[in-house]
């Protein structure tokens, strides 16, 4: 019988598991410093931008605030006109009923309240194409020549 293979008496040599590659580039701390520097610059610009965005939205807001009384006044006139003419029409229709009283339905208080029911008109532009659906003559009487429908 031959001798059994045994490890060398002093043991094996240490295995070289570490690669001897030179470490390239900067130290990690320098990379971290560069990253922080870059981020700081970025955040500086970003903060400036955000501050300006706040100012820009303030500008938009005040432009709107300056216009609100104008728009509100126009809308109010329209509401009053519609309300009064609605009540006038109601009084005209119900003039033969002696106990009828034209007043707002939903509140006992004597306050202005537009009627909760409205006169509803036609659907505009029924036969027009998809693309320019309601572009023509939206609010006025329908002057455009009507197409003959087969129905």
């Amino acid at each position: 019988m031959g001798r059994q293979d045994l490890p060398p008496i002093k043991g094996y040599e240490p295995i070289q598991w570490k690669r001897n590659l030179p470490s390239r580039g900067f130290r990690p701390s320098i990379w971290l410093g560069m990253l922080i520097g870059l981020s700081s610059y970025g955040f500086y610009k970003l903060i400036q931008g955000n501050r300006e965005n706040i100012e820009l939205s303030r500008e938009k807001l005040w432009a709107r605030i300056n216009l609100i009384p104008l728009l509100q006044a126009e809308q109010d006139r329209d509401v009053v006109r519609r309300t009064l003419s609605y009540y006038n029409r109601e009084a005209e229709i119900m003039k033969d009923v002696p106990w009828w009283e034209v007043r707002n339905t939903y509140s006992d208080k004597n306050e202005f309240q537009p009627p909760h029911t409205v006169l509803v008109g036609k659907q505009l532009d029924k036969n027009h194409g998809i693309y320019n659906g309601n572009s023509r003559n939206r609010w006025g009487p329908d002057d455009s020549p009507k197409k003959e429908t087969s129905s």
Partner: peptide, 22 residues
């Protein structure tokens, strides 16, 4: 603003007609 007949139909858009003056 409604953009198409299809939208109008879906929403059932109808317009208030009130021509009385102030």
């Amino acid at each position: 603003i409604s953009t198409s007949v299809a939208t109008d139909k879906r929403r059932g858009t109808q317009y208030v007609l009130e021509n009385g003056k102030l």
